[in-house]
Each structure stands twice: as structure tokens, then as C-alpha cells.
Write a protein that binds this DNA or RNA. Structure first.
Lengths: 238, 238
DNA sequence: CGCATACTTCGGCCGGGGCCGAACTGTTCC
DNA sequence: GGAACAGTTCGGCCCCGGCCGAAGTATGCG
């Protein structure tokens, strides 16, 4: 009777709180072993194993085994995109504890979003590129192109933008930011930029979670390039 | 323990087959009464009423009452976006019956997608605009701008593009097309274009479902403007 | 080889939620 | 007013699926 795609299936999988917590953790971009995901979701390993089996068989998640561990990741950008789209319509959790509000503030400043950077810092970098007309202004869901492949930020990070342009993946993709209510830089370029920033030691991942901390080197380099990270100065002026 | 948005809540709501069918129907862009949605979902009115109550209280759907009917619509572009993103990762249903394959072919050619046009016809129009450099090439999720507000297609449809540009809504938004695997024209411009096409009688909605049929007037006008709708000529060359 | 660790499979418990029919409210039309 | 129709609320049924603990498989280490 219906000629449409069966959206209820993936939605049902994401709709369980334990699985949703695992998927949100994987949105951080890192590969995580089953035991960590079990702890994150707050369930026993046996339960987590069942959840992960369903997620992999549905193609939302891929597993690679290394030794006696199995590491899980989101299967691709489409999956990450669906999760992001859902978080845009999800109810905002009301912050209760001080620890929560502090970590929320940190996430609002800089965090990883699957394979790219999100938060206020990501917007600051993107705004610089837009201001210099290296890329067009971002809109949620649309596709842009790279006008200036030799922008100082790209050269400072030794990024070879050409092969990125040649890839079939959407290049400059806006990704609606749930903390800032503005799209940030995703897509192939956003992913390349993020890995370069990590490789050059401008920033590093938090040991746990999705948080990203910019190093002194990264801050000074970015300041030199005209990007100001006002980490402390603007205390959560939501 | 979690500082993230509770994506499981909306996902759980979409994850029920009956509710998903209703939401997909509403993706057609029309306001539908509860009884129609019950028939579409294949449940009794009482069950449908419960589902719709949950969807409205979660803010996914808005209801407006007119007489003894209550008409339901998706609450906004964010909601539509989440549903589209899910359909991109949903398993493709394997077509069995001839009637299904015919209706699927028609949907692939032209259908409504919440408030804009989708399918091969939508891509043909967007490609024309891109070719004439009125808009930048679409990428899924990114945002573009309108370069030529006086493009012949806009003037033929008597579209006033200026106020659309001024609106805060993402302007030129790529929206991943599940039949074509390419983004089509969504956003404020896509919505405006679609309503203009309907108002000028270039196309009309099917009595039921999401199908769109282009009229003889619409076809000739578009051909004159350099857009060829090869409806019959290319028989589902997937 | 044997012990520890990482993960999976199985059996069983239990609660949530989807479904319906029946009864109730409200609107339209004659 | 009364009949017809749209929609909602309520009570009850039942099954799906999430949870666990215990047992089973595989890998790594001493």
C-alpha cells in the first residue's frame, strides 16, 4: 500500500534510549569498543551486544575487530546526518547540575561531530573562510564549492584541497548546530580540515566524550590567521 | 549522565510504522484530516487519534481545526528535514506488484517533498538554474545564494525573489533525493518555486499521495525555458 | 597450557505501548 | 431537535522487545 521508504525501521532503532546514547557517542567520530558503549548506555555487556548487533545488521554502524576488541563507528555521513537532523528536533535537556552546565559549555565551544568540528570554534573558522570568500555562506543542507583553494588557513595546515574537491562527497555542507542554531562546516572539506587540525596539534580530543580542546599552538596560529577563539571571554551568552 | 540532546524521543515517535506512514503522508505538504491519516496508516480512528496526540505534543506536527475536521501538518522544515534524512538511510522497499512499480516510477519523476518539489523533474529545473549560474551547484546540507534574481524561470512564474532572499530560512538547500541519490532544490527558494508552479497551473497535486503531474501548459512553458521533462522517454533507467 | 578478558548467545522475566471496541463530545446538515 | 459524522477518551488485551544472569566462544598473556 505504501510506495515509500520504510523510515520507521531506522527510526525505531535510534528510538531506544540505550542505542541512541551509543550512536551519540559514536557521533564523536571515534571508534569505540563494545564495553565502552555498554558503559555509556548504562546497560550490561550482553544487552549492549544485542543492540550493536541490530545496529550493524541494519547498516547504521560498522564494526572492525582488532584483537579481542570490536570497535564500532557510524557507517557513513548519511547516518551521521540523520542523527544530527534528529538532534535538531529533539527536546533540549534542562541543565541541572553544575558539572553538567560546565561540560555543556565546553561542548558548545568545541566538539567533534562525526568527522568534523562543531561548536562556536567551528563557526569562527568557517566565518573567516566565508569572510575571505574562500567558500560561500553556509546554509543548512545545501552544497557549496571552494573558491580559493590556496587560502592561508589551508596552507598553514598543509591541506591539499584539490583531491578533496575531486571526491564525490558533498564538499561544503552546512550542518545545523544544535548549540548555535546556525549551520557549521561539514562535508568533505569540513572533515579534511578537522583531521588536519588534529594532525598539526592545534587541538586534541578529550579522553572521553565529544569534547575538543584547542592547544596553545592552535590558538596562536588561528589568531595569526585572523580567527579569534573567545573561549573564556564570552561566558555562555546564550 | 548524558549532556546530549535526547534524540531517542523523536526517533521513537517516528519509529512506529503507523506514525511513520502518517508523517510520510504529511511530507507531501498537504494538511490532512485525522480520518485520512488513519486510513493511510491502516489503523482505526481511535488509534490514529492517540498517535496524532503524541506527535503534536512532541511538536513534530501541528493541528488546525476547521469545522468538524482537524488538519495535521508537519510543524516545520526541521521536522521535514529529519524525516528526509531518515529516508536516506531507510532500506529501499523491493517493488513487487506492477501497480506499485508504476506509482513508484511516477513518484520518481515528480513528487512533493513537504513544501518543495522532488524527483527527476525537480532536478531538471534545478540543473537549468545551475547551468545558467542563477544558483550554485547543490550539495546535500549546504547553503547557497541566489546570483540572478531575474532568471527567466523566475520571471515567467512572476516570482518575487527579493523577499525570499530576505527571509531567515535557508535559501537554497540541497535535500537528498532518495530516488535519484542527488540533492534537489529545497529551502526557501525551493518552496517559493513550488507554490508558484502550482499557482500558475504548470502542475497539480495528485488527489491522493505525494504525486505531482505536470500539465501541458507547464511542460510547454518549461520547454520554452530550456527545461526538458522526459517523462515517458526514459523508462525508469535506474 | 590455563587464566583473564572481550564479546556473544540463550532462557526467562516483565513492563510499555500499540491495538481495538464502546462510549462520549462536538459539529454540521436537514 | 435529531441523525450523521469527525474526533477523543477509556478499559482491556496481548505481544514485542529491552533487560539481566549464566553459560558459551574467542583472543591474548604469562
Amino acid at each position: 500500500m505504501e510506495g515509500d521508504a520504510q523510515i520507521s525501521h531506522p527510526a525505531m532503532l535510534i528510538g531506544d534510549p540505550a542505542r541512541a546514547a551509543m550512536l551519540m557517542a559514536m557521533l564523536g567520530g571515534r571508534s569505540l569498543p563494545a564495553s565502552d558503549l555498554a558503559a555509556i548506555a548504562g546497560v550490561k555487556p550482553s544487552t549492549a551486544s544485542e543492540h550493536l548487533a541490530r545496529l550493524t545488521s541494519a547498516g547504521l554502524v560498522t564494526a572492525t575487530r582488532s584483537g579481542r576488541h570490536r570497535y564500532f563507528t557510524l557507517s557513513g555521513p548519511d547516518t551521521a546526518n540523520a542523527i544530527e537532523a534528529l538532534s535538531a528536533i529533539a527536546p533540549r535537556h534542562t541543565v541541572q547540575s553544575l558539572a553538567q552546565s560546565k561540560s555543556a559549555a565546553q561542548l558548545g565551544f568545541a566538539r567533534s561531530c562525526y568527522d568534523h568540528l562543531a561548536g562556536a570554534a567551528a563557526l569562527a573558522i568557517a566565518d573567516r573562510l566565508i569572510h575571505d570568500e574562500a567558500i560561500a555562506p553556509l546554509e543548512n543542507g545545501a552544497n557549496g564549492t571552494v573558491a580559493a583553494t590556496g587560502h592561508p588557513i589551508f596552507t598553514a595546515l598543509e591541506m591539499d584541497v584539490e583531491p578533496v574537491v575531486a571526491s564525490r562527497r558533498p564538499l561544503v555542507r552546512g550542518c545545523l548546530d544544535w548549540t548555535q542554531r546556525r549551520p557549521h562546516l561539514a562535508g568533505a572539506l569540513g572533515a579534511r580540515l578537522f583531521t588536519s587540525i588534529l594532525e598539526h596539534g592545534w587541538a586534541e580530543r578529550a579522553r572521553t566524550g565529544r569534547g575538543i580542546r584547542f592547544t596553545a599552538l592552535g590558538r596562536s596560529e588561528l589568531r595569526r590567521l585572523g580567527v579569534v577563539l573567545d573561549d573564556e571571554s564570552s561566558p555562555a551568552a546564550r
